[in-house]
Simulated assay, not measured.
Amino acid sequence: MNGVLGEGAIPHERIARLPQDKRARLVQRLRSQTEDGHGVDRWFVRYSAVDRPAVRLFCFPYAGGGGSAFRGWSEGLPAGVDVWAAQLPGRESRVTEPALRRLDPLIETLHEAILPKLDLPYAFFGHSMGALVAFELTRRLRRAGAPLPSRLLLGAFRAPQLPNPHIRIHHLPDEVLKTVLGKEGTPRQVLESEELMRALLPTLRADLEICDTYRYREEPPLTMPMSVFGGHQDVRVSRGDLDMWRTQANGPFRLVMLPSSHFFLHSSQDLLLAELSRELGSAPRPAEGERRHD
């Protein structure tokens, strides 16, 4: 699996807990706009404006997730970090657009969309499927001779050269897919909401198809610092899967294990943002090598 609709996901978990009438109104509002967005364009959204940004942090969500997964991150990061969350087709403010089903066209479109925003130093963070997107977008920018991220921050996805250990599930019937999602940790309130599942399943299937059909292509390792984050209790992505990212790094590499499961960006958000602050802010950097939270 690739990090879909997990415990604490935003806004899915919050929507599922609302009374039916309020839930319907909120789903409709998500169809028309991203809540409280500042500096919104089709592909990236800011939830908090930064007056004098020193670095832009572009964030890419897990399968089925939208930009709101990163709502509130600016408050947990140094003042000069300008957070931009990727808003992919088929979700939230773009829910009426068909989701893409292959990684290559997604990367090509993101490449064109992000180029005008690379006038400042920047970094990438991606969680689960988002880590794969961030990695391949970085390689696409390198092939184009564009400015590259100063840091690559990747979470909860196996090293891309490793084979996919999971069965393909994007084509499964709805009820079978929901059963699989339940076993993988998707909250029952989400699965039992027909309204939510009707809105989410097409996009979720498309994202799963992106991961199921991904084929790694050999290129030289990346030279910017790379930090990879994982959860000690993640049953989907092992520490060994994460450590193999080392072969993609021809620069400083860190493996950071957090005391949580696959969706540590929600359940251990404070710890993750503290680590990202060390990477992006003025605080002293940790020693090279692995930093662990036991």
Score class of each variant (00 low, 15 high):
residue 237 V to G: 08
residue 197 M to K: 13
residue 118 L to M: 13
residue 73 W to H: 06
residue 12 H to A: 14
residue 264 F to L: 14
residue 128 S to N: 08
residue 134 A to C: 11
residue 239 R to P: 00
residue 178 K to F: 07
residue 25 R to M: 09
residue 144 A to W: 07
residue 97 E to C: 13
residue 211 C to M: 15
residue 87 Q to I: 11
residue 100 L to K: 03
residue 8 G to Y: 02
residue 121 P to C: 10
residue 52 R to S: 11
residue 217 R to V: 10
residue 286 P to Y: 04
residue 49 A to H: 13
residue 172 L to Y: 14
residue 25 R to I: 05
residue 268 S to N: 10
residue 62 Y to L: 08
residue 60 F to P: 03
residue 201 L to T: 09
residue 248 Q to I: 00
residue 166 H to M: 05
residue 39 G to R: 10
residue 209 E to K: 15
residue 36 D to M: 12
residue 80 G to V: 04
residue 42 R to N: 10
residue 82 D to N: 09
residue 24 A to F: 04
residue 151 R to A: 11
residue 181 L to P: 11
residue 138 T to F: 06
residue 75 E to G: 10
residue 234 D to Q: 11
residue 163 P to Y: 04
residue 133 V to P: 02
residue 253 F to M: 14
residue 74 S to E: 14
residue 240 G to Y: 04
residue 83 V to W: 01
residue 58 F to C: 07
residue 55 V to D: 00
residue 117 K to F: 12
residue 290 E to G: 02
residue 160 P to G: 09
residue 41 D to H: 09
residue 169 I to F: 02
residue 57 L to W: 05
residue 169 I to G: 10
residue 53 P to F: 04
residue 186 T to V: 15
residue 68 S to P: 00
residue 226 M to S: 04
residue 61 P to E: 09
residue 120 L to S: 00
residue 259 P to K: 11
residue 106 L to H: 04
residue 41 D to N: 15
residue 273 L to I: 02
residue 245 W to A: 01
residue 81 V to W: 07
residue 201 L to N: 11
residue 111 H to E: 05
residue 147 P to L: 15
residue 133 V to Y: 06
residue 155 G to N: 01
residue 266 H to I: 01
residue 99 A to R: 11
residue 156 A to Y: 06
residue 148 L to S: 01
residue 101 R to M: 08
residue 149 P to G: 06
residue 7 E to C: 06
residue 129 M to P: 00
residue 247 T to C: 13
residue 247 T to N: 09
residue 193 S to K: 10
residue 200 L to N: 03
residue 64 G to I: 02
residue 150 S to N: 01
residue 112 E to C: 02
residue 24 A to E: 14
residue 71 R to Y: 06
